[in-house]
Design a protein around this nucleic acid. Structure first.
Lengths: 187, 187
DNA sequence: TAAAATAACGAACACTTTGTTCGCTATCGA
DNA sequence: TCGATAGCGAACAAAGTGTTCGTTATTTTA
Protein backbone atom coordinates (compact mmCIF):
# COMPACT_ATOMS: atom_id res chain seq x y z
CA UNK A 1 0.00 0.00 0.00
CA UNK A 2 1.11 3.56 -0.73
CA UNK A 3 3.17 5.03 2.08
CA UNK A 4 1.02 8.16 2.01
CA UNK A 5 -2.13 6.16 2.57
CA UNK A 6 -0.57 4.32 5.46
CA UNK A 7 0.43 7.52 7.17
CA UNK A 8 -2.96 9.12 6.66
CA UNK A 9 -4.75 6.06 7.92
CA UNK A 10 -2.52 5.86 10.97
CA UNK A 11 -2.95 9.54 11.71
CA UNK A 12 -6.72 9.25 11.56
CA UNK A 13 -6.73 6.16 13.77
CA UNK A 14 -4.48 7.85 16.30
CA UNK A 15 -6.60 10.98 16.36
CA UNK A 16 -9.82 9.04 16.64
CA UNK A 17 -8.36 6.86 19.37
CA UNK A 18 -7.26 9.87 21.34
CA UNK A 19 -10.67 11.44 21.08
CA UNK A 20 -12.43 8.23 22.04
CA UNK A 21 -10.35 8.00 25.17
CA UNK A 22 -11.50 11.38 26.34
CA UNK A 23 -15.07 11.71 25.12
CA UNK A 24 -18.08 9.75 24.05
CA UNK A 25 -18.21 8.37 20.53
CA UNK A 26 -21.51 10.04 19.74
CA UNK A 27 -20.14 13.46 20.63
CA UNK A 28 -17.10 13.23 18.40
CA UNK A 29 -17.46 15.02 15.07
CA UNK A 30 -15.72 14.24 11.83
CA UNK A 31 -14.40 17.76 11.94
CA UNK A 32 -12.62 17.10 15.22
CA UNK A 33 -11.06 13.95 13.86
CA UNK A 34 -9.86 15.81 10.79
CA UNK A 35 -8.35 18.58 12.87
CA UNK A 36 -6.70 16.20 15.32
CA UNK A 37 -5.31 14.03 12.56
CA UNK A 38 -4.28 17.08 10.59
CA UNK A 39 -5.53 15.80 7.29
CA UNK A 40 -7.74 17.35 4.66
CA UNK A 41 -11.46 16.94 4.71
CA UNK A 42 -11.35 15.31 1.29
CA UNK A 43 -8.72 12.87 2.46
CA UNK A 44 -10.80 11.65 5.37
CA UNK A 45 -13.75 10.88 3.14
CA UNK A 46 -11.46 9.16 0.66
CA UNK A 47 -10.55 6.70 3.41
CA UNK A 48 -13.78 6.29 5.32
CA UNK A 49 -17.36 6.75 4.28
CA UNK A 50 -18.63 7.77 7.69
CA UNK A 51 -17.62 7.98 11.33
CA UNK A 52 -19.22 4.61 11.89
CA UNK A 53 -17.18 3.12 9.12
CA UNK A 54 -14.07 4.42 10.83
CA UNK A 55 -15.13 2.87 14.12
CA UNK A 56 -15.50 -0.54 12.51
CA UNK A 57 -12.11 -0.24 10.90
CA UNK A 58 -10.56 0.74 14.21
CA UNK A 59 -12.09 -2.26 15.95
CA UNK A 60 -10.65 -4.53 13.30
CA UNK A 61 -7.27 -2.87 13.58
CA UNK A 62 -7.11 -3.01 17.36
CA UNK A 63 -8.90 -6.20 18.21
CA UNK A 64 -8.77 -8.30 15.10
CA UNK A 65 -5.64 -10.10 16.20
CA UNK A 66 -7.02 -10.64 19.68
CA UNK A 67 -10.09 -12.34 18.31
CA UNK A 68 -7.93 -14.41 16.04
CA UNK A 69 -5.65 -15.57 18.82
CA UNK A 70 -8.74 -16.22 20.91
CA UNK A 71 -10.02 -18.61 18.30
CA UNK A 72 -6.69 -20.40 18.18
CA UNK A 73 -6.66 -20.67 21.94
CA UNK A 74 -10.16 -22.09 22.03
CA UNK A 75 -9.18 -24.55 19.35
CA UNK A 76 -6.19 -25.76 21.30
CA UNK A 77 -7.45 -25.78 24.84
CA UNK A 78 -11.21 -25.79 24.61
CA UNK A 79 -13.40 -23.20 26.27
CA UNK A 80 -12.56 -24.31 29.76
CA UNK A 81 -10.32 -27.26 29.89
CA UNK A 82 -10.70 -29.62 32.83
CA UNK A 83 -7.36 -28.49 34.10
CA UNK A 84 -6.56 -25.19 35.74
CA UNK A 85 -7.82 -21.94 34.35
CA UNK A 86 -4.78 -19.96 33.16
CA UNK A 87 -5.01 -21.20 29.62
CA UNK A 88 -8.72 -20.58 29.27
CA UNK A 89 -9.91 -18.46 26.40
CA UNK A 90 -11.30 -15.95 28.81
CA UNK A 91 -8.10 -15.48 30.68
CA UNK A 92 -6.28 -15.21 27.42
CA UNK A 93 -8.60 -12.48 26.25
CA UNK A 94 -8.33 -10.55 29.50
CA UNK A 95 -4.57 -10.69 29.33
CA UNK A 96 -4.65 -9.28 25.85
CA UNK A 97 -6.85 -6.45 26.97
CA UNK A 98 -4.59 -5.62 29.87
CA UNK A 99 -1.44 -5.70 27.81
CA UNK A 100 -2.50 -2.36 26.52
CA UNK A 101 -1.45 -2.92 22.95
CA UNK A 102 -1.80 0.28 21.04
CA UNK A 103 -3.46 2.25 23.81
CA UNK A 104 -6.41 -0.05 24.08
CA UNK A 105 -6.84 0.70 27.74
CA UNK A 106 -7.27 4.39 27.11
CA UNK A 107 -10.07 3.68 24.72
CA UNK A 108 -11.74 1.17 26.92
CA UNK A 109 -11.69 3.29 30.03
CA UNK A 110 -13.45 6.06 28.16
CA UNK A 111 -17.19 6.41 27.91
CA UNK A 112 -17.32 4.44 24.70
CA UNK A 113 -16.12 1.13 26.07
CA UNK A 114 -19.52 -0.43 25.46
CA UNK A 115 -19.11 0.01 21.76
CA UNK A 116 -15.88 -1.90 21.72
CA UNK A 117 -17.19 -4.63 23.94
CA UNK A 118 -20.05 -5.26 21.55
CA UNK A 119 -17.43 -6.13 19.01
CA UNK A 120 -16.06 -8.84 21.27
CA UNK A 121 -19.50 -10.00 22.15
CA UNK A 122 -20.31 -11.07 18.65
CA UNK A 123 -17.05 -12.92 18.21
CA UNK A 124 -17.41 -14.56 21.60
CA UNK A 125 -20.93 -15.67 20.89
CA UNK A 126 -19.87 -17.57 17.82
CA UNK A 127 -16.90 -19.05 19.59
CA UNK A 128 -18.84 -20.22 22.60
CA UNK A 129 -21.66 -21.59 20.54
CA UNK A 130 -19.41 -23.82 18.49
CA UNK A 131 -17.40 -24.90 21.52
CA UNK A 132 -20.33 -25.62 23.72
CA UNK A 133 -22.09 -27.64 21.08
CA UNK A 134 -19.04 -29.67 20.18
CA UNK A 135 -18.38 -30.44 23.79
CA UNK A 136 -19.42 -33.86 24.99
CA UNK A 137 -21.33 -32.60 27.96
CA UNK A 138 -24.47 -33.89 29.51
CA UNK A 139 -27.06 -31.85 27.67
CA UNK A 140 -28.82 -29.79 30.23
CA UNK A 141 -32.40 -30.19 29.20
CA UNK A 142 -33.62 -27.62 31.61
CA UNK A 143 -31.81 -24.74 30.01
CA UNK A 144 -31.80 -24.09 26.26
CA UNK A 145 -28.50 -23.96 24.46
CA UNK A 146 -29.11 -20.44 23.19
CA UNK A 147 -29.80 -19.12 26.63
CA UNK A 148 -26.60 -20.59 27.94
CA UNK A 149 -24.44 -19.24 25.17
CA UNK A 150 -25.85 -15.79 25.63
CA UNK A 151 -25.46 -16.03 29.38
CA UNK A 152 -21.79 -16.82 29.13
CA UNK A 153 -20.81 -14.28 26.52
CA UNK A 154 -23.05 -11.69 28.11
CA UNK A 155 -21.59 -12.26 31.55
CA UNK A 156 -18.11 -12.05 30.21
CA UNK A 157 -18.69 -8.75 28.47
CA UNK A 158 -20.33 -7.28 31.54
CA UNK A 159 -17.47 -8.47 33.67
CA UNK A 160 -14.91 -6.98 31.33
CA UNK A 161 -16.72 -3.65 31.38
CA UNK A 162 -16.89 -3.70 35.15
CA UNK A 163 -13.21 -4.53 35.32
CA UNK A 164 -12.10 -1.87 32.89
CA UNK A 165 -14.29 0.86 34.34
CA UNK A 166 -13.06 0.01 37.81
CA UNK A 167 -9.49 0.58 36.70
CA UNK A 168 -8.44 -3.03 36.11
CA UNK A 169 -7.70 -3.58 39.78
CA UNK A 170 -7.63 -7.37 39.51
CA UNK A 171 -5.25 -9.53 37.55
CA UNK A 172 -6.60 -11.43 34.56
CA UNK A 173 -5.93 -14.66 36.40
CA UNK A 174 -7.88 -13.52 39.43
CA UNK A 175 -10.78 -12.41 37.29
CA UNK A 176 -10.75 -15.61 35.33
CA UNK A 177 -10.96 -17.56 38.57
CA UNK A 178 -14.04 -15.62 39.60
CA UNK A 179 -15.59 -16.04 36.20
CA UNK A 180 -14.84 -19.69 36.20
CA UNK A 181 -16.47 -19.97 39.61
CA UNK A 182 -19.73 -18.42 38.48
CA UNK A 183 -19.83 -20.06 35.05
CA UNK A 184 -18.56 -23.59 35.59
CA UNK A 185 -21.53 -24.65 37.72
CA UNK A 186 -23.82 -24.13 34.75
CA UNK A 187 -21.54 -25.49 32.05
CA UNK B 1 -49.97 21.26 35.83
CA UNK B 2 -51.38 23.22 32.94
CA UNK B 3 -53.47 21.07 30.65
CA UNK B 4 -51.58 22.42 27.65
CA UNK B 5 -48.26 21.33 29.06
CA UNK B 6 -49.57 17.86 29.75
CA UNK B 7 -50.80 17.46 26.20
CA UNK B 8 -47.59 18.73 24.69
CA UNK B 9 -45.49 16.50 26.90
CA UNK B 10 -47.60 13.48 26.06
CA UNK B 11 -47.46 14.25 22.35
CA UNK B 12 -43.69 14.51 22.41
CA UNK B 13 -43.34 11.29 24.38
CA UNK B 14 -45.66 9.48 22.00
CA UNK B 15 -43.84 10.78 18.96
CA UNK B 16 -40.45 9.95 20.38
CA UNK B 17 -41.62 6.51 21.43
CA UNK B 18 -42.94 5.81 17.96
CA UNK B 19 -39.72 6.89 16.37
CA UNK B 20 -37.61 4.85 18.80
CA UNK B 21 -39.57 1.75 17.93
CA UNK B 22 -38.71 2.07 14.28
CA UNK B 23 -35.23 3.54 14.20
CA UNK B 24 -32.09 3.97 16.22
CA UNK B 25 -31.95 6.68 18.84
CA UNK B 26 -28.86 8.26 17.37
CA UNK B 27 -30.48 8.66 13.98
CA UNK B 28 -33.55 10.43 15.29
CA UNK B 29 -33.46 14.21 14.92
CA UNK B 30 -35.22 16.77 17.06
CA UNK B 31 -36.87 17.96 13.87
CA UNK B 32 -38.47 14.57 13.34
CA UNK B 33 -39.76 14.50 16.88
CA UNK B 34 -41.21 17.97 16.47
CA UNK B 35 -42.91 17.02 13.23
CA UNK B 36 -44.25 13.75 14.57
CA UNK B 37 -45.51 15.36 17.75
CA UNK B 38 -46.87 18.26 15.78
CA UNK B 39 -45.59 20.92 18.13
CA UNK B 40 -43.61 24.05 17.56
CA UNK B 41 -39.85 24.07 17.67
CA UNK B 42 -39.91 26.58 20.50
CA UNK B 43 -42.29 24.41 22.46
CA UNK B 44 -40.03 21.40 22.32
CA UNK B 45 -37.10 23.32 23.68
CA UNK B 46 -39.28 24.81 26.39
CA UNK B 47 -39.91 21.29 27.65
CA UNK B 48 -36.59 19.56 27.06
CA UNK B 49 -33.10 20.90 26.79
CA UNK B 50 -31.81 18.23 24.45
CA UNK B 51 -32.75 14.93 22.88
CA UNK B 52 -30.84 13.19 25.64
CA UNK B 53 -32.83 15.03 28.25
CA UNK B 54 -35.98 13.77 26.59
CA UNK B 55 -34.67 10.23 26.66
CA UNK B 56 -34.06 10.40 30.39
CA UNK B 57 -37.51 11.79 31.00
CA UNK B 58 -39.04 9.03 28.89
CA UNK B 59 -37.20 6.38 30.88
CA UNK B 60 -38.54 7.84 34.08
CA UNK B 61 -42.02 8.00 32.67
CA UNK B 62 -42.05 4.46 31.33
CA UNK B 63 -39.98 2.56 33.80
CA UNK B 64 -40.10 4.58 36.98
CA UNK B 65 -43.07 2.68 38.33
CA UNK B 66 -41.54 -0.65 37.37
CA UNK B 67 -38.43 0.12 39.32
CA UNK B 68 -40.53 1.25 42.21
CA UNK B 69 -42.61 -1.91 42.28
CA UNK B 70 -39.42 -3.88 41.89
CA UNK B 71 -38.07 -2.37 45.06
CA UNK B 72 -41.28 -3.16 46.91
CA UNK B 73 -41.15 -6.71 45.66
CA UNK B 74 -37.56 -7.12 46.77
CA UNK B 75 -38.47 -5.72 50.14
CA UNK B 76 -41.30 -8.17 50.62
CA UNK B 77 -39.89 -11.34 49.14
CA UNK B 78 -36.15 -10.91 49.06
CA UNK B 79 -34.09 -11.29 45.94
CA UNK B 80 -34.71 -14.97 45.62
CA UNK B 81 -36.78 -16.38 48.39
CA UNK B 82 -36.16 -19.99 49.35
CA UNK B 83 -39.51 -20.88 47.92
CA UNK B 84 -40.48 -21.15 44.26
CA UNK B 85 -39.47 -18.54 41.76
CA UNK B 86 -42.64 -16.80 40.59
CA UNK B 87 -42.45 -14.07 43.14
CA UNK B 88 -38.81 -13.27 42.53
CA UNK B 89 -37.85 -9.73 41.71
CA UNK B 90 -36.54 -10.84 38.35
CA UNK B 91 -39.69 -12.59 37.35
CA UNK B 92 -41.65 -9.60 38.48
CA UNK B 93 -39.57 -7.33 36.34
CA UNK B 94 -39.84 -9.54 33.29
CA UNK B 95 -43.58 -9.67 33.66
CA UNK B 96 -43.72 -5.92 33.75
CA UNK B 97 -41.69 -5.69 30.61
CA UNK B 98 -43.88 -8.17 28.81
CA UNK B 99 -47.09 -6.53 29.88
CA UNK B 100 -46.32 -3.95 27.27
CA UNK B 101 -47.44 -0.99 29.33
CA UNK B 102 -47.48 2.03 27.12
CA UNK B 103 -45.84 0.37 24.16
CA UNK B 104 -42.72 -0.58 26.02
CA UNK B 105 -42.21 -3.63 23.88
CA UNK B 106 -42.18 -1.59 20.72
CA UNK B 107 -39.40 0.51 22.10
CA UNK B 108 -37.43 -2.39 23.42
CA UNK B 109 -37.60 -4.43 20.25
CA UNK B 110 -36.12 -1.53 18.33
CA UNK B 111 -32.44 -0.93 17.89
CA UNK B 112 -32.27 1.26 20.96
CA UNK B 113 -33.10 -1.36 23.55
CA UNK B 114 -29.61 -1.18 25.00
CA UNK B 115 -30.18 2.39 26.06
CA UNK B 116 -33.25 1.48 28.04
CA UNK B 117 -31.65 -1.53 29.61
CA UNK B 118 -28.84 0.60 30.98
CA UNK B 119 -31.50 2.43 32.91
CA UNK B 120 -32.57 -0.78 34.61
CA UNK B 121 -29.02 -1.84 35.18
CA UNK B 122 -28.30 0.99 37.52
CA UNK B 123 -31.45 0.45 39.54
CA UNK B 124 -30.82 -3.28 39.66
CA UNK B 125 -27.29 -2.86 40.83
CA UNK B 126 -28.36 -0.85 43.83
CA UNK B 127 -31.15 -3.24 44.61
CA UNK B 128 -29.03 -6.35 44.40
CA UNK B 129 -26.20 -4.82 46.35
CA UNK B 130 -28.39 -3.95 49.31
CA UNK B 131 -30.20 -7.30 49.19
CA UNK B 132 -27.13 -9.41 48.84
CA UNK B 133 -25.36 -7.67 51.67
CA UNK B 134 -28.30 -7.80 54.01
CA UNK B 135 -28.78 -11.48 53.34
CA UNK B 136 -27.54 -13.84 56.00
CA UNK B 137 -25.56 -15.95 53.60
CA UNK B 138 -22.30 -17.68 54.00
CA UNK B 139 -19.91 -15.05 52.74
CA UNK B 140 -18.16 -16.46 49.76
CA UNK B 141 -14.60 -15.49 50.39
CA UNK B 142 -13.44 -16.60 47.00
CA UNK B 143 -15.49 -14.11 45.05
CA UNK B 144 -15.71 -10.42 45.96
CA UNK B 145 -19.09 -8.94 46.70
CA UNK B 146 -18.75 -6.35 43.96
CA UNK B 147 -17.99 -8.92 41.34
CA UNK B 148 -21.02 -10.90 42.31
CA UNK B 149 -23.39 -7.96 42.27
CA UNK B 150 -22.18 -6.94 38.85
CA UNK B 151 -22.40 -10.48 37.58
CA UNK B 152 -26.01 -10.81 38.57
CA UNK B 153 -27.27 -7.48 37.34
CA UNK B 154 -25.16 -7.77 34.22
CA UNK B 155 -26.40 -11.23 33.43
CA UNK B 156 -29.95 -10.14 33.93
CA UNK B 157 -29.65 -7.22 31.57
CA UNK B 158 -27.97 -9.34 28.93
CA UNK B 159 -30.68 -11.95 29.31
CA UNK B 160 -33.42 -9.37 28.98
CA UNK B 161 -31.83 -7.99 25.82
CA UNK B 162 -31.52 -11.46 24.36
CA UNK B 163 -35.12 -12.17 25.23
CA UNK B 164 -36.49 -8.95 23.81
CA UNK B 165 -34.45 -9.09 20.64
CA UNK B 166 -35.48 -12.66 20.09
CA UNK B 167 -39.13 -11.65 20.17
CA UNK B 168 -39.92 -12.61 23.77
CA UNK B 169 -40.50 -16.24 22.84
CA UNK B 170 -40.33 -17.49 26.42
CA UNK B 171 -42.67 -16.70 29.27
CA UNK B 172 -41.29 -14.63 32.14
CA UNK B 173 -41.68 -17.63 34.41
CA UNK B 174 -39.68 -19.83 32.06
CA UNK B 175 -36.95 -17.26 31.77
CA UNK B 176 -36.86 -16.72 35.50
CA UNK B 177 -36.40 -20.43 35.97
CA UNK B 178 -33.39 -20.44 33.64
CA UNK B 179 -31.97 -17.39 35.30
CA UNK B 180 -32.46 -18.86 38.70
CA UNK B 181 -30.68 -21.99 37.52
CA UNK B 182 -27.59 -20.14 36.41
CA UNK B 183 -27.52 -17.66 39.28
CA UNK B 184 -28.54 -19.63 42.34
CA UNK B 185 -25.42 -21.79 42.34
CA UNK B 186 -23.30 -18.72 42.94
CA UNK B 187 -25.57 -16.95 45.36
C1' DT C 1 15.32 9.09 -14.62
C1' DA C 2 11.20 10.59 -16.87
C1' DA C 3 6.35 10.02 -17.12
C1' DA C 4 1.97 8.42 -15.66
C1' DA C 5 -0.75 7.39 -11.74
C1' DT C 6 -2.36 8.44 -7.48
C1' DA C 7 -2.86 10.73 -2.83
C1' DA C 8 -3.47 14.72 -0.32
C1' DC C 9 -4.77 19.34 -0.21
C1' DG C 10 -7.75 23.69 0.47
C1' DA C 11 -11.55 26.23 -0.83
C1' DA C 12 -16.05 26.34 -1.89
C1' DC C 13 -20.59 24.31 -2.22
C1' DA C 14 -25.42 22.96 -0.88
C1' DC C 15 -27.53 20.87 2.62
C1' DT C 16 -29.10 19.48 7.37
C1' DT C 17 -29.41 20.05 12.21
C1' DT C 18 -29.27 22.63 16.31
C1' DG C 19 -30.66 25.87 19.69
C1' DT C 20 -32.19 30.59 20.30
C1' DT C 21 -34.89 34.99 19.77
C1' DC C 22 -38.84 37.63 18.52
C1' DG C 23 -43.57 39.18 18.43
C1' DC C 24 -48.18 37.29 18.16
C1' DT C 25 -52.18 34.33 19.46
C1' DA C 26 -54.77 30.92 22.12
C1' DT C 27 -55.79 28.94 26.38
C1' DC C 28 -55.90 28.42 31.25
C1' DG C 29 -56.80 29.44 36.08
C1' DA C 30 -57.99 32.62 39.72
C1' DT D 1 -62.98 38.77 33.05
C1' DC D 2 -58.28 39.38 32.89
C1' DG D 3 -53.54 38.52 33.86
C1' DA D 4 -50.40 34.85 33.33
C1' DT D 5 -48.70 31.41 30.67
C1' DA D 6 -48.13 28.01 26.84
C1' DG D 7 -47.69 27.42 22.20
C1' DC D 8 -46.87 29.13 17.62
C1' DG D 9 -44.11 30.24 13.28
C1' DA D 10 -40.57 32.67 11.12
C1' DA D 11 -36.11 33.78 11.14
C1' DC D 12 -31.37 33.45 12.76
C1' DA D 13 -26.42 32.14 13.47
C1' DA D 14 -23.56 28.42 14.23
C1' DA D 15 -21.86 23.99 13.45
C1' DG D 16 -21.60 19.74 10.95
C1' DT D 17 -21.96 16.76 6.75
C1' DG D 18 -20.57 15.02 2.46
C1' DT D 19 -19.25 16.36 -2.22
C1' DT D 20 -16.85 18.70 -6.17
C1' DC D 21 -12.91 20.83 -8.45
C1' DG D 22 -8.44 22.36 -9.65
C1' DT D 23 -3.70 22.19 -7.82
C1' DT D 24 0.40 20.24 -5.71
C1' DA D 25 3.31 16.55 -3.93
C1' DT D 26 4.67 11.85 -3.87
C1' DT D 27 5.06 7.30 -5.44
C1' DT D 28 5.21 3.65 -8.84
C1' DT D 29 6.47 1.84 -13.24
C1' DA D 30 8.27 1.84 -17.60
Amino acid sequence: MDRRQQKTRAAIFAAFGGLLAEKNYSKITVQEIIDAANVGRTTFYAHFETKEDLLKALCEELFGHIVKSMEDCAHTHGLYSDRSAPESVFCHLLQHLQQNDKNVTGLLSGESSEIFMRFFRDSLNELIRSRIVSRDRKTNEEIPQDFLVNHISGSFVEMALWWIKGGMKQTPEELDRYFCAVIKPVL
